[in-house]
Simulated assay, not measured.
Amino acid sequence: MPNASAAHLTRRGILAAGGALGLGAVLTACGDDKASSGAGSGKETAAAKSGPWTFKDDRDETVKLDRTPANIVAFVGVAAALHDYGIGVTGVFGPTRLQNGKADVQAGDLDISKVTVIGNVWDEFSVEKYAALSPDVLITTMFDDAGTLWYVPDASKDQIAGLAPSVGISVYDRQMTEPLQRVYELAESLGADVTSKKVTAAKKRFEDAAARLRAATKAKPDIKVLAGSASQDIFYVSGSNLSIDLEYFKALGVNFVEPSAEALKASGGWFENLSWENVDKYDADVIIMDNRTSAIQPDAIEEATWKKLPAVKAGQVIGRNPEPILSYDKCAPLLEELAEAIEKAKKVS
């Protein structure tokens, strides 16, 4: 899969990979160019366990510590997921704070004023700030099968690795339920009460939402769904393989528009890029668009070819987060929204 260091991808192409593939925001336009920090550690961990702590990650690497980590530094989306389980972090990296000071969509319910932001945009990671936090562990995701830690800069990865052990959760070529379960297990190991009413209710809501989406696709199997992402010059159409959300939605019966293998080849199988003149290449009844701040949002797209699309004219466009916050609390609404869109959709293609 194309990763951020892949030489054949342009900076904008990587962003689209973020839009279309589930990769992250790499344009600096929507982020702060300087790492920023907030007061306090944001620790919320209730009754963190004492004694040794071990966790085997998706690289088959096992972290062993004398005690449960207290100073956790995590990719912002992972931090947001842990927050939903009552586990706080000390520092975050990745798209966290917008230029207006508000939280990025990938921060979820995190109080970003209470964590240290050691990097807010692609390739920004303050090793000095990281070291100053005395981190016990670094946690992030992985978008390939090579163990590449997401948003950890290649140039400083060895220095970063020398300061604390890392945990990688794979979000590559698997269904959403797998990394969801892994983060659930990770949170439990860190002291989360996964038997709490909040967590069990969120898990049931997710399961109910999955059943609803399956029922919706069974009732309307001919509704075609296109997963897209918009940049200034290119419209990206995702294939349904490799991305955790699309793979899961497909397993629940969603009828996706699928670019050909040849069209996907240049991106390693993730997406096809179209010029805006060719944005009508595929017929679709529902369009799900990258809703992160790294992508142009549907209401800001001025291209006439976009406005003429049947799904756009019918108002059958919803958001999609290609990097879902991996808690049941945050993933359930994604299924509910797509189920509702299919339930209400008219056949327009």
Rank of each mutant, 00 (worst) to 15 (best):
P2E: 03
N3A: 08
T10C: 04
R11A: 14
G13C: 02
G18D: 06
G19K: 06
A20K: 01
V26M: 06
V26E: 09
A29E: 13
D33H: 01
S36A: 10
A39E: 14
E44Q: 14
A46V: 14
A47Y: 00
K49L: 07
S50I: 04
G51D: 06
P52C: 04
F55E: 04
K56N: 00
D57V: 07
R59P: 00
K64R: 13
L65W: 09
D66Q: 09
R67T: 14
A70C: 03
N71E: 13
I72C: 09
A74N: 02
F75T: 00
F75S: 01
A79Y: 03
D84W: 10
Y85Q: 01
G88R: 09
V92S: 08
P95Q: 06
P95F: 08
Q99E: 08
N100L: 10
V105F: 13
Q106M: 14
A107T: 01
G108R: 08
D109R: 14
I112H: 10
K114V: 06
I118S: 00
W122P: 03
E124H: 11
F125D: 09
I139T: 09
T140H: 03
D144W: 12
D144L: 08
G147H: 11
W150A: 12
V152A: 08
I160T: 05
L163K: 03
S166G: 14
V167N: 05
G168K: 15
I169R: 05
I169K: 04
V171C: 11
R174C: 02
E178D: 11
E178P: 02
R182G: 00
V183L: 12
E185I: 01
L190S: 05
T195L: 04
K198P: 06
T200V: 12
D208M: 04
R214I: 00
A216L: 11
T217A: 14
V225R: 13
L226I: 11
L226S: 06
A230L: 07
A230E: 03
S231I: 00
V237C: 02
Y248H: 14
K250G: 08
V254R: 06
N255Y: 11
F256R: 11
P259W: 09
A261G: 15
S267F: 07
N273I: 01
N273M: 11
L274E: 04
N278C: 04
D280W: 01
K281G: 02
Y282P: 06
D283M: 02
A284L: 07
T293P: 03
T293N: 14
T293G: 12
A295C: 07
P298I: 06
D299K: 15
A300M: 06
A304M: 07
T305R: 12
L309E: 05
V312G: 11
V312N: 13
A314I: 00
G315T: 06
V317Q: 09
P322H: 06
L326C: 03
S327N: 04
D329M: 01
K330H: 10
K330V: 04
A332M: 11
L334D: 14
E336C: 09
E336N: 08
A339S: 14
I342H: 11
K346W: 01
